[in-house]
Nucleic acid binder design. Sequence first.
DNA 1: ATTATCTATAGATCTATAGATAATGC
DNA 2: ATTATCTATAGATCTATAGATAATGC
Lengths: 211, 211
Amino acid sequence: MKDKEGKEGGDVGMEERILACAERLFLGKGYNLTSMTEIAREAGCTQALVHYYFRTKENLFSKIFEEKFHQFINCIVKREDEDLPFADLVSARTSRLFDLMAENRRLPFMFLSEFVINPEQRLSLKDTMVTLCAEAVSRLEAMIATEVEGGRIRPTGTMDITLNMFSLVVTFFVVLPFLEEMGFVTDDNREEFIAQRKQEIIRTIIGSLRP
Amino acid sequence: MKDKEGKEGGDVGMEERILACAERLFLGKGYNLTSMTEIAREAGCTQALVHYYFRTKENLFSKIFEEKFHQFINCIVKREDEDLPFADLVSARTSRLFDLMAENRRLPFMFLSEFVINPEQRLSLKDTMVTLCAEAVSRLEAMIATEVEGGRIRPTGTMDITLNMFSLVVTFFVVLPFLEEMGFVTDDNREEFIAQRKQEIIRTIIGSLRP
DNA sequence: ATTATCTATAGATCTATAGATAATGC
DNA sequence: ATTATCTATAGATCTATAGATAATGC
């Protein structure tokens, strides 16, 4: 029996507990506003121990950041959906992105705060991003061309559709806390509000493509 | 003649120079990552002087934040546009929001980083926001109802249209630096890219409303 | 006299490390 | 023996203030 069971997890090792706390804190406040001291306090150990396991703060952060980043990209692109008809593919990807965001609402904030502030981080992940993005849109690009040719959608760039999807989904979860604070969303209507917004986003994206 | 002309402004007083530097730094990196020392260094004085003029960091930040915030809100809502036909009003507001963002690209980052981190800031501006937002959408709401009744647009909520507008415009400028870094946007095509995206956003919003 | 500016410093953090001690695995 | 944990502390910041000095306005 450990002396401190703490908030995080059950009877899991201290290293994992540190990771879990760090993840939560980094996601909530970004790199610079989270201190090793705070992570240690939350995990229930001294900050020396946090350094013992991860040596530097940068190290600890990278571990979490990169894991989240890959999880994020992989979730969006699923090869199976490439056999779907165009509208269904757009709908499926939007829906998946929406659900991922619903479960990781602070993710964009974490990305943003790090990327905007930390140009090195940005550079170091650039290649990964370019590759993964290219993969993500290659099939889409071809489909759009076909649809446009067939006159089923108006001429549109892959970039525009992708930006639309990303913008609508991500911003929604970013502003959600404010909508709650301002009383537009309450405990009673939250679930329905979110579900409706999801449908509306998909309708917006697909609907705006009609010729 | 002052001994230090510095980067910011011409022969303007030190107080204004401090304000200008603080604005640039706060906008770029948010409250917590900007130090009084750094502001002083940029403005070309000691940090004691920065405290002399603004007493606390919080004070200095609030001054800038609130000014920017009001500028932001007032820019979006212009009463004259309320006489325009529906599509034109949506288009005009989107366009204005787009232009404002184009000139203050770090604004959303500043808002976000402060709001997400600083619940007090959020609370203190809540009332202002609610009032201004209500004003901004009241006329829109009536127009939407009329349009829907007349069968000219499909049934849609004011909230959805507003969110669409906000999401599409703001996210574009947030991700623009990444698109540049990834090579999708270059010095050569930037202007055109931005102009096209603006049109596409308006098309998306209006187009998605067709019945 | 008042306003603007500087130097110096107290007091809070924070990261990282060194070195001691307790727990564990063989 | 090795791994996990702690205490203590060095060395960097940072905010804020006190107190001295220079510049300005009457």
